[in-house]
């Protein structure tokens, strides 16, 4: 058999030297290659991210800011430590479309308020709060910004990538989607490498299909190196669904 380079496999393509002794001729050039793990995404992935981002709001508080998202026509979710009680929810302004546009200008934000007298459910163990959003001119917040359906049945698993749309430090909306593997899964929580910061509390943690698989709530110290944060953590949506029951729409 004549010595030559052959293509191997149908997945990530590699050239393999086949047969022959002595020096290899130069490897074929002009082709792409997958370096390390495969990073291709279908282009719809960006559309899905932008669609999901519409339902994510900056939570403006009297002394700070956090993140939350619509999970039903009038229903907003964030952390318990963001809205510990009804007064916290009453004092907040939910700011949708709080972001920069592609030309670098500040987009026009849309502000809504909570009506905890109508519905307020909180759970410190799973660190979540659900609260009703007041309608404006007979329109619900989701009529304008859509909502994230939590009853999708997807679960996170180790080494899966998870993305977080968030307002870290109260900043214009950001997405963290690099270096973002899930590293551990507990009964009620998952831990991941996706970046967060103060103000990310209450953000949705998405899988690559933009299903919300967790509610981000904290950072985790490295047990082997004090004072270093090594993972972030959120409670599983399935645990929150089990606790909230019929409050969250099908």
């Amino acid at each position: 058999m004549k010595a030559h380079w052959v293509m191997s496999g149908t997945g990530p393509q590699e050239f393999i030297w086949q047969g022959g002794e002595g020096n290899h001729p130069e490897m074929p050039t002009g082709f792409g290659a997958v370096i390390g793990s495969q990073n291709f995404k279908e282009i719809w992935w960006l559309e899905a991210a932008l669609k999901a981002a519409r339902s994510v709001a900056r939570v403006k508080l009297p002394a700070g800011a956090a993140t939350g998202f619509l999970v039903g026509p009038d229903l907003f979710m964030t952390n318990h430590h963001v809205f510990e009680n009804e007064d916290d929810a009453r004092s907040a302004i939910l700011q949708f479309n709080y972001r920069l546009s592609v030309d670098g200008d500040v987009a026009e934000r849309d502000e809504w308020q909570c009506v905890p007298d109508s519905l307020f459910k909180t759970n410190p163990e799973l660190d979540y709060t659900l609260v009703r959003v007041q309608q404006k001119e007979n329109r619900s917040a989701a009529d304008v910004w859509g909502f994230l359906n939590l009853r999708h049945g997807a679960e996170a698993h180790v080494n899966q990538r998870v993305n977080i749309i968030q307002h870290p430090q109260g900043r214009f909306q950001q997405i963290a989607f690099r270096d973002n593997q899930v590293k551990a899964i507990g009964d009620n929580f998952i831990q991941y490498l996706t970046d967060t910061d103060y103000g990310t509390s209450g953000s949705p943690v998405f899988d690559d299909w933009f299903h919300v698989v967790a509610l981000h709530n904290m950072r985790v110290p490295d047990p082997s190196e004090p004072y270093r944060w090594y993972r972030n953590q959120g409670y599983k949506i399935e645990a929150i669904l089990a606790d909230a029951g019929a409050l969250i729409p099908v």
């Binding site: 002394a63 700070g64 800011a65 430090q169 109260g170 900043r171 214009f172």
Partner: peptide, 9 residues
């Protein structure tokens, strides 16, 4: 710079 200020940032 880059973001709107808040009373704590």
């Amino acid at each position: 710079f880059g973001q709107e200020p808040m009373v704590w940032t």
